[in-house]
Protein backbone atom coordinates (compact mmCIF):
# COMPACT_ATOMS: atom_id res chain seq x y z
CA UNK A 1 0.00 0.00 0.00
CA UNK A 2 1.27 3.42 -0.96
CA UNK A 3 -0.34 6.63 0.20
CA UNK A 4 1.07 10.15 0.20
CA UNK A 5 -0.72 13.34 1.14
CA UNK A 6 0.52 16.74 0.03
CA UNK A 7 -0.85 19.98 1.44
CA UNK A 8 -0.48 21.95 -1.78
CA UNK A 9 -1.47 20.41 -5.10
CA UNK A 10 0.22 23.43 -6.69
CA UNK A 11 3.63 21.93 -5.89
CA UNK A 12 2.74 18.86 -7.92
CA UNK A 13 1.51 21.03 -10.79
CA UNK A 14 4.77 22.96 -10.80
CA UNK A 15 6.81 19.77 -10.70
CA UNK A 16 4.95 18.49 -13.71
CA UNK A 17 5.47 21.79 -15.53
CA UNK A 18 9.17 21.42 -14.84
CA UNK A 19 9.49 18.01 -16.49
CA UNK A 20 6.66 17.57 -18.97
CA UNK A 21 8.46 19.18 -21.86
CA UNK A 22 11.54 17.04 -21.44
CA UNK A 23 9.80 13.76 -20.77
CA UNK A 24 6.67 12.21 -22.20
CA UNK A 25 6.49 9.41 -19.67
CA UNK A 26 8.35 8.62 -16.48
CA UNK A 27 8.51 6.18 -13.63
CA UNK A 28 7.94 7.42 -10.08
CA UNK A 29 9.80 5.09 -7.75
CA UNK A 30 8.24 5.12 -4.32
CA UNK A 31 10.14 3.76 -1.35
CA UNK A 32 9.74 4.31 2.35
CA UNK A 33 12.19 7.20 2.14
CA UNK A 34 10.24 9.07 -0.50
CA UNK A 35 9.52 9.39 -4.21
CA UNK A 36 12.26 9.44 -6.82
CA UNK A 37 12.13 9.95 -10.52
CA UNK A 38 15.07 9.64 -12.83
CA UNK A 39 14.78 9.78 -16.59
CA UNK A 40 16.58 10.90 -19.69
CA UNK A 41 14.81 12.93 -22.32
CA UNK A 42 13.93 11.19 -25.59
CA UNK A 43 17.22 12.06 -27.26
CA UNK A 44 19.24 11.05 -24.19
CA UNK A 45 20.97 14.40 -24.00
CA UNK A 46 19.78 15.46 -20.58
CA UNK A 47 18.81 13.73 -17.39
CA UNK A 48 16.13 14.72 -14.91
CA UNK A 49 16.34 13.64 -11.30
CA UNK A 50 13.49 14.40 -8.94
CA UNK A 51 13.56 13.62 -5.26
CA UNK A 52 10.65 14.14 -2.84
CA UNK A 53 11.47 13.12 0.72
CA UNK A 54 8.89 11.24 2.76
CA UNK A 55 9.09 13.76 5.61
CA UNK A 56 8.07 16.56 3.28
CA UNK A 57 4.61 15.07 2.87
CA UNK A 58 1.71 15.65 5.25
CA UNK A 59 1.37 11.90 5.64
CA UNK A 60 3.43 9.29 3.85
CA UNK A 61 3.16 5.54 3.85
CA UNK A 62 4.90 3.05 1.63
CA UNK A 63 4.86 -0.58 2.75
CA UNK A 64 6.62 -2.01 -0.27
CA UNK A 65 8.53 -0.31 -3.06
CA UNK A 66 6.29 0.59 -5.97
CA UNK A 67 7.28 1.83 -9.40
CA UNK A 68 4.57 3.84 -11.07
CA UNK A 69 5.07 4.43 -14.77
CA UNK A 70 3.00 7.40 -15.85
CA UNK A 71 2.23 9.11 -19.06
CA UNK A 72 2.92 12.74 -18.22
CA UNK A 73 0.32 14.07 -20.64
CA UNK A 74 -2.32 12.02 -18.85
CA UNK A 75 -0.99 13.17 -15.49
CA UNK A 76 -1.30 16.75 -16.76
CA UNK A 77 -4.95 16.17 -17.60
CA UNK A 78 -5.64 14.96 -14.09
CA UNK A 79 -3.75 17.78 -12.41
CA UNK A 80 -5.80 20.26 -14.43
CA UNK A 81 -8.76 19.11 -12.38
CA UNK A 82 -7.40 20.50 -9.14
CA UNK A 83 -6.71 23.96 -7.76
CA UNK A 84 -3.29 24.96 -6.55
CA UNK A 85 -4.37 25.05 -2.90
CA UNK A 86 -6.20 21.73 -2.92
CA UNK A 87 -4.92 18.96 -0.69
CA UNK A 88 -3.84 16.04 -2.86
CA UNK A 89 -3.53 12.38 -1.89
CA UNK A 90 -1.91 9.77 -4.11
CA UNK A 91 -2.81 6.15 -3.52
CA UNK A 92 -1.78 2.86 -5.04
CA UNK A 93 -2.02 -0.79 -4.09
CA UNK A 94 1.12 -2.87 -3.85
CA UNK A 95 1.22 -4.42 -7.31
CA UNK A 96 -1.25 -1.95 -8.73
CA UNK A 97 -1.88 -0.98 -12.31
CA UNK A 98 -3.72 2.20 -11.36
CA UNK A 99 -2.94 5.18 -9.19
CA UNK A 100 -5.66 7.24 -7.52
CA UNK A 101 -5.52 11.00 -7.00
CA UNK A 102 -7.88 12.52 -4.45
CA UNK A 103 -8.28 16.30 -4.45
CA UNK A 104 -9.91 18.02 -1.49
CA UNK A 105 -10.73 21.68 -1.82
CA UNK A 106 -9.40 23.79 1.07
CA UNK A 107 -12.94 24.64 2.21
CA UNK A 108 -13.58 20.87 2.33
CA UNK A 109 -16.78 21.20 0.33
CA UNK A 110 -15.52 19.46 -2.73
CA UNK A 111 -13.78 16.16 -3.03
CA UNK A 112 -12.87 14.61 -6.35
CA UNK A 113 -10.93 11.50 -7.18
CA UNK A 114 -9.34 10.29 -10.38
CA UNK A 115 -7.85 6.94 -11.31
CA UNK A 116 -5.06 6.83 -13.83
CA UNK A 117 -3.80 3.73 -15.59
CA UNK A 118 -0.14 3.04 -14.96
CA UNK A 119 2.34 1.88 -17.55
CA UNK A 120 5.18 -0.55 -17.41
CA UNK A 121 8.14 1.48 -18.53
CA UNK A 122 11.46 -0.15 -19.16
CA UNK A 123 13.87 2.41 -17.87
CA UNK A 124 17.53 2.21 -17.18
CA UNK A 125 18.84 3.79 -14.06
CA UNK A 126 22.04 5.74 -14.19
CA UNK A 127 24.30 6.01 -11.21
CA UNK A 128 25.13 9.61 -10.50
CA UNK A 129 28.31 9.94 -8.49
CA UNK A 130 28.88 12.54 -5.83
CA UNK A 131 31.16 15.10 -7.41
CA UNK A 132 33.11 18.04 -6.10
CA UNK A 133 32.39 20.70 -8.65
CA UNK A 134 34.98 23.28 -9.64
CA UNK A 135 32.37 25.98 -9.57
CA UNK A 136 29.00 26.34 -7.90
CA UNK A 137 26.84 29.35 -8.71
CA UNK A 138 23.71 30.19 -6.76
CA UNK A 139 21.45 32.82 -8.19
CA UNK A 140 17.80 33.88 -8.33
CA UNK A 141 15.95 31.48 -10.60
CA UNK A 142 14.04 34.30 -12.29
CA UNK A 143 17.35 35.88 -13.24
CA UNK A 144 18.59 32.57 -14.63
CA UNK A 145 15.40 32.07 -16.64
CA UNK A 146 15.71 35.56 -18.05
CA UNK A 147 19.36 35.16 -19.09
CA UNK A 148 18.56 31.90 -20.85
CA UNK A 149 15.51 33.35 -22.56
CA UNK A 150 17.39 36.44 -23.73
CA UNK A 151 20.41 34.56 -25.04
CA UNK A 152 18.42 31.75 -26.67
CA UNK A 153 17.39 34.28 -29.28
CA UNK A 154 20.97 34.49 -30.49
CA UNK A 155 22.32 31.01 -30.90
CA UNK A 156 21.85 27.32 -30.42
CA UNK A 157 24.33 27.25 -27.59
CA UNK A 158 25.19 29.34 -24.58
CA UNK A 159 28.65 29.52 -23.07
CA UNK A 160 29.01 29.81 -19.31
CA UNK A 161 32.29 31.38 -18.21
CA UNK A 162 32.78 31.42 -14.46
CA UNK A 163 35.44 33.43 -12.70
CA UNK A 164 35.88 34.83 -9.21
CA UNK A 165 34.16 38.07 -10.16
CA UNK A 166 31.05 36.57 -11.69
CA UNK A 167 29.51 34.47 -14.42
CA UNK A 168 29.41 35.48 -18.04
CA UNK A 169 26.76 33.93 -20.25
CA UNK A 170 27.30 34.43 -23.96
CA UNK A 171 25.79 33.28 -27.21
CA UNK A 172 26.57 33.91 -30.86
CA UNK A 173 24.34 33.40 -33.85
CA UNK A 174 23.25 34.75 -37.20
CA UNK A 175 21.94 38.03 -35.86
CA UNK A 176 24.94 38.76 -33.66
CA UNK A 177 26.29 38.19 -30.20
CA UNK A 178 24.81 38.50 -26.74
CA UNK A 179 26.63 38.62 -23.41
CA UNK A 180 25.18 38.79 -19.92
CA UNK A 181 27.49 39.22 -16.99
CA UNK A 182 26.16 38.45 -13.54
CA UNK A 183 28.49 39.67 -10.81
CA UNK A 184 28.85 38.16 -7.37
CA UNK A 185 26.65 40.11 -4.96
CA UNK A 186 28.20 42.06 -2.11
CA UNK A 187 25.47 41.16 0.36
CA UNK A 188 25.38 37.41 0.69
CA UNK A 189 22.29 37.13 2.87
CA UNK A 190 19.76 38.62 0.50
CA UNK A 191 17.44 36.32 -1.39
CA UNK A 192 18.45 37.96 -4.64
CA UNK A 193 22.15 37.42 -4.07
CA UNK A 194 24.35 35.70 -6.59
CA UNK A 195 27.11 33.70 -4.96
CA UNK A 196 29.97 31.84 -6.54
CA UNK A 197 32.07 29.16 -4.92
CA UNK A 198 35.06 28.71 -7.14
CA UNK A 199 37.93 26.23 -7.08
CA UNK A 200 39.04 26.99 -10.61
CA UNK A 201 37.61 29.06 -13.47
CA UNK A 202 35.39 27.04 -15.79
CA UNK A 203 34.13 27.69 -19.30
CA UNK A 204 31.52 25.34 -20.74
CA UNK A 205 29.04 25.47 -23.61
CA UNK A 206 25.53 24.04 -23.52
CA UNK A 207 22.57 23.69 -25.85
CA UNK A 208 20.19 26.64 -25.39
CA UNK A 209 17.15 24.51 -26.05
CA UNK A 210 17.73 22.31 -23.02
CA UNK A 211 18.65 25.21 -20.76
CA UNK A 212 15.36 26.80 -21.78
CA UNK A 213 13.50 23.65 -20.78
CA UNK A 214 15.29 23.55 -17.42
CA UNK A 215 14.41 27.17 -16.77
CA UNK A 216 10.76 26.14 -16.83
CA UNK A 217 11.31 24.85 -13.30
CA UNK A 218 12.03 28.33 -11.98
CA UNK A 219 8.46 28.46 -10.66
CA UNK A 220 9.40 25.78 -8.14
CA UNK A 221 12.03 27.75 -6.34
CA UNK A 222 13.33 31.27 -6.00
CA UNK A 223 16.90 30.08 -6.18
CA UNK A 224 18.79 27.95 -8.63
CA UNK A 225 22.14 26.29 -8.19
CA UNK A 226 24.45 25.66 -11.14
CA UNK A 227 27.31 23.22 -10.58
CA UNK A 228 30.06 22.92 -13.14
CA UNK A 229 33.37 21.19 -13.73
CA UNK A 230 35.35 20.89 -16.94
CA UNK A 231 34.16 18.13 -19.27
CA UNK A 232 31.41 16.83 -17.00
CA UNK A 233 27.68 17.52 -17.10
CA UNK A 234 26.25 20.72 -15.71
CA UNK A 235 23.85 20.30 -12.82
CA UNK A 236 20.95 22.73 -12.54
CA UNK A 237 19.23 22.28 -9.21
CA UNK A 238 15.96 23.76 -8.00
CA UNK A 239 15.03 23.10 -4.38
CA UNK A 240 11.38 22.30 -3.80
CA UNK A 241 10.58 23.95 -0.47
CA UNK A 242 11.05 21.55 2.46
CA UNK A 243 10.38 18.47 0.43
CA UNK A 244 13.14 17.82 -2.07
CA UNK A 245 14.67 18.96 -5.31
CA UNK A 246 14.63 18.61 -9.06
CA UNK A 247 18.02 18.36 -10.76
CA UNK A 248 18.83 18.52 -14.42
CA UNK A 249 22.04 17.18 -15.90
CA UNK A 250 23.27 18.37 -19.28
CA UNK A 251 26.45 17.31 -21.04
CA UNK A 252 28.63 20.16 -22.31
CA UNK A 253 29.06 20.58 -26.05
CA UNK A 254 32.36 19.41 -27.43
CA UNK A 255 34.46 22.33 -28.55
CA UNK A 256 35.40 22.27 -32.22
CA UNK A 257 39.06 22.27 -33.10
CA UNK A 258 38.85 25.71 -34.61
CA UNK A 259 37.11 27.03 -31.55
CA UNK A 260 33.71 27.61 -33.10
Amino acid sequence: MFEAKLQQAGTLKKILDAIKELLTEATFDCTDSGIQLQAMDNSHVSLVSLNLRADGFETYRCDRNVSMGMNLTSLGKILKCCSADDVVTMKAQDAADIVTFVFEASNQERVSDFDMKLMNLDQEHLGIPETDYACVVKMPSAEFARVIRDLSQFGESITFSCSKAGVKFSSTGDIGTGNVKVAQSSSVDSKDATTIELQEPVTLTFASRYLGLFAKASGLSERVQLSMSPEVPLVVEFKINDIGYVRYYLAPKIEDDDGN
Binding site: M40, H44, L126, E231, K253
Partner: peptide, 30 residues
Protein backbone atom coordinates in the same frame (compact mmCIF):
# COMPACT_ATOMS: atom_id res chain seq x y z
CA UNK B 1 25.77 15.71 -33.36
CA UNK B 2 27.74 18.18 -31.30
CA UNK B 3 25.57 17.48 -28.29
CA UNK B 4 26.87 14.66 -26.17
CA UNK B 5 24.64 12.02 -24.72
CA UNK B 6 24.23 12.34 -21.00
CA UNK B 7 24.39 8.56 -20.63
CA UNK B 8 28.07 8.70 -21.61
CA UNK B 9 28.82 10.29 -18.26
CA UNK B 10 26.97 8.03 -15.91
CA UNK B 11 27.18 4.33 -15.27
CA UNK B 12 24.15 2.21 -15.91
CA UNK B 13 23.00 0.53 -12.77
CA UNK B 14 21.86 -3.05 -12.72
CA UNK B 15 18.29 -3.36 -11.61
CA UNK B 16 18.09 -4.56 -8.07
CA UNK B 17 15.26 -4.89 -5.64
CA UNK B 18 16.85 -2.97 -2.82
CA UNK B 19 17.60 0.68 -2.76
CA UNK B 20 20.19 1.45 -5.40
CA UNK B 21 21.17 4.75 -3.90
CA UNK B 22 24.50 3.58 -2.58
CA UNK B 23 25.71 1.70 -5.61
CA UNK B 24 29.37 2.58 -6.05
CA UNK B 25 30.02 4.67 -9.08
CA UNK B 26 33.33 6.08 -10.10
CA UNK B 27 33.33 6.67 -13.84
CA UNK B 28 32.60 10.20 -14.79
CA UNK B 29 34.80 11.03 -17.76
CA UNK B 30 33.19 10.26 -21.12
Amino acid sequence: APVQKISKFFVKQPKTEDNTENFPVSVLKP
